[in-house]
């Protein structure tokens, strides 16, 4: 117990000292995770809408596949993307392996199904009357979709936050595609794993606290806008 308290206090000291290495790790983590969440949302939310509002052959199959892919293991994505971007891979010529771009690509693949599935879940539950009311008041297809988006935005934002939570805390993709290169692709989770391997806990505990703080902050922010939106 004394050991844990020691690490805890040292971690606070470390964060307090504004050590640039530590903050760079946090910066890389946030940059990669926010980028992948943004890209996955820009692709996934419209895709979820399209699937939700159109009837086509195989729609149920698509929904089932998306739901199953929500449980995609990070190491599987890591392997898959690795096979494409490694030197011998199809896209090896782009020299993407062990870059932040590679991490973003892997993370987008990981959370795209989450965003799509949760968007479908949120929009398919929305009252059909909203769509018809918007249409009868003269809204075109895009404006109607925006109305439905407004009415379901909390469900969709919750999906996006779940996706962000998945990427900020994942380690498989960051390790396999980023390579944990110091000052470049080292994220909070890969750094923590490395510190654990070295038997050093202070940095690990510090980063763990930051991770928890980020998820707390995101949820406080979400609750805040949700409260504001209740009219």
């Amino acid at each position: 117990m004394g050991f844990f308290i020691d690490s805890f206090l040292s971690a606070i000291m470390l964060l307090w000292s504004f050590n640039p290495d530590v903050y760079f790790i946090i910066y890389v983590s946030l940059k990669v995770s926010l980028s992948s969440t943004l890209i996955a949302s820009l692709l996934g939310v419209p895709a979820g809408f399209m699937i939700s509002f159109n009837s086509f052959r195989g729609k149920r199959a698509v929904v089932t596949v998306m739901n199953s892919l929500m449980a995609l293991p990070t190491v599987v994505v890591g392997l898959l993307v690795y096979s494409f971007i490694s030197r011998k891979g199809l896209l090896g010529i782009l020299d993407l392996l062990y870059t932040q771009t590679a991490m973003v690509i892997g993370q987008v693949i990981l959370i795209f199904p989450i965003v799509v599935s949760l968007t479908i879940a949120a929009t398919s539950r929305v009252d059909e009357r909203y769509r018809k009311t918007a249409m009868t008041l003269g809204a075109g297809p895009l404006q109607t979709a925006l109305v439905v988006f407004r009415e379901t935005r909390f469900g969709i934002i919750a999906g996006v936050i779940a996706a962000f939570g998945r990427v900020i805390s994942e380690i498989g993709i960051s390790m396999m595609l980023g390579g944990n290169a110091k000052g470049y692709t080292r994220t909070m989770t890969t750094a923590m794993a490395l510190e654990y391997d070295k038997g050093e806990f202070v940095l690990g505990v510090a980063l763990g606290m930051v991770l928890l703080f980020i998820s707390l902050a995101v949820n406080i922010f979400f609750n805040h806008i949700q409260g504001k939106g209740r009219v």
Binding site: R129, T133, E151
Partner: peptide, 12 residues
């Protein structure tokens, strides 16, 4: 042409 529903919903 506008239709007013029997059980109208208003936007949030």
């Amino acid at each position: 042409i506008v239709m007013v529903r029997q059980d109208p919903v208003l936007f949030t």
